[in-house]
Amino acid sequence: MTVTAKEFQLWRGRVAAQHTVAELCRTVGLKRSTLAQQLVRGRIPLSTVIGVARAYGLNPLASLAEFEGYHDVESGTRPPTDAELVSQVCHVDILRLLVVRSQRLQRVGADLGVNLSPFPHGTSVRSWIEAIDPGDLRQQLSARTGIARQNLSAQLTAGKLAPAILVEAARIADVSLTNGLVVGGYISADEAAWPEDARERALARMSDADLAWLGRDRLDNLGKQIRKSELDERTDKLMWENLG
């Protein structure tokens, strides 16, 4: 979510002591009015903190760890689990892999034969939450962060969760605290120290049955999404055809 303006100012004084606010904004590539507004409101979004850290050559995670609510983020960094890695492969790549495994003489564990598209993708956050869910993640999340369940669902459908909630989800599910920030697009996989080709290796380890079931689940979700967009299109068409 946000950090307090007071904390941000103190931190800024340390990491960019030689720069005025105007110079800082120029270095980061942030509009001065934007930062001024954030300071007046008293809440600085995480993207600003991470932007400043990157611009001044600092490790975004180490910088984040200096703020209230994120102290354990750096120490809580571990390698991602296979389930998390697989959740970051988009459905088209999963289907491609099913085809490749069906057509080629390829043993499980061998080279993938598919170039994965980059991530985070459109359903990254939702897939990640589903992948780490111990069973009652949504209930616990809403109890601990005070966000209503239906708001949480709406944000998940839109693929947008606030950083503090992503970190809290990781805490509840007992996975690396930075992974939520990666799938939310706040920090890069490199910055969270995800191993190179980790997704490819996790996929290669999957058995054929698991892969088939994964494909089924992804298609299931995709079908629901498309059904919804078709319903939306039908209401649009009614408007266009009758009043357009």
Binding site: S117, I226, E230
Partner: peptide, 17 residues
């Protein structure tokens, strides 16, 4: 709709990238 959903994903990641 398939292309749009997949395309939306790509724009999303590209803008983040």
């Amino acid at each position: 709709a398939l292309r749009e959903l997949f395309g939306a994903n790509r724009t999303f990641q590209n803008s983040r990238q």
